[in-house]
Amino acid sequence: MGKKKVNNILMFLGFAGPAVFAFAFVIGWAFVNGVFMSFTDWNGISESYNMVGISNYIKAIHDINFWQSLGRTTQYVIGVVIIVNIVAFFFAYLLTRGYKGQGIFRTGFFVPNLIGGVVLGIVWKFIFSEALVQLGKISIFSTFANNWLSDPDTAMLAMIIVAVWQQAGYLMIIYMAGIIAVPETVCEAASLDGATGLYAIRKIILPLVMPSITICTFLSVKAAFMVYDVNLTLTAGGPFKSTIMASMHVYNKAFKYNDFGIGQAEAIILFLIVAVISVAQVTITKNKEVEA
C-alpha cells in the first residue's frame, strides 16, 4: 500500500469514522436486523428462533386489526394534512400582510410546537374530559357536554384537532418563508392587472409557494402516519379500541403481545406504505412548482 492510500484511509477513519460508526450501529444494524427478524418467529425473550419465510407477512396481511388501524390512520392523516395545511397557510398569509404586531402572533402560534406530544395529549385529555364538559352546561356549547373522548367519532375528531393545533405553527413558519420569498414586483403587477384577494392567492401566490407546499405536505403526512405519543396520552387507543393507530398497533403487537416477528413485518409494511405515499406526493407536488 502506498503512503497516500494509508493516509486516505486514516483520513476517512478520522473524519467520517465516528459519524458513520454511530449511524451504522444504531440505524443500519437495526434496519437490517429488522428485515431479518420479520422472517423469523422470535418471541422477544428466548435465545433461539426459527426462520419462517414469509409467514409473518402472510399473517400480517390476514391481521384484520392491523388493516383496521391502517384505515383509521388513513382517515386521520387525510383530516390532519388537509386541515393543518389550510390553517397554517392561512395564518402565514395573514401574518405576512405587513400589519403591526404580527411577530407576537407568530410567536404565539408556534408555542404548541415546542412541547412534546405526551404533554399536549395530557393537557387536551384534561380539557376534553373536564374543562369542556363543564363548559357544555352552557347551552351554546352543549356539543361539549359529553366527554368527546368517550365516543369513537368525536375521539377521532379530538385527535385531529390536537394534531392541527400542535403542528399549525410549525408549518406556518415554513409557509411564511415561502410567501416572503415571492417577489413583490410579481404581486404588484398582478394587482395592477386586477388580481386581488382570493383570486391573487389562487393564481399567483399558491403556484409560487408550491415548494413550501411540497415540504409541508411531506412533513405533515409523515408526522400523521407515525403518530404515537398524542395517541397514547390523549385516547390510549380508546374508547373501545376505536382510535388505535398503526404505530400503536405495531407497538402493542411487539411489546404487549410478544409477537415480534409479525409486529416487525407490519412495521416494514407500514414503512413501505409511507415511503411510497411520500415519494408519490413529492413527485406530484414538485411537478406543479413554477418559477417566478
Binding site: 458513520v20 449511524f23 437495526a30 434496519f31 436486523n33 412495521a267 407500514l270
Partner: peptide
Amino acid sequence: NKIIFMVMVVSMIIPFQTIMIPLVKN
C-alpha cells in the same frame, strides 16, 4: 463517500417505528 452519503440521505425516511423492535433486540 458518495455511497455512504446516499445511504444516509435515503435512511432519513425510515420512521422510528420500523427500527424500534430490532433496536431493543440489538
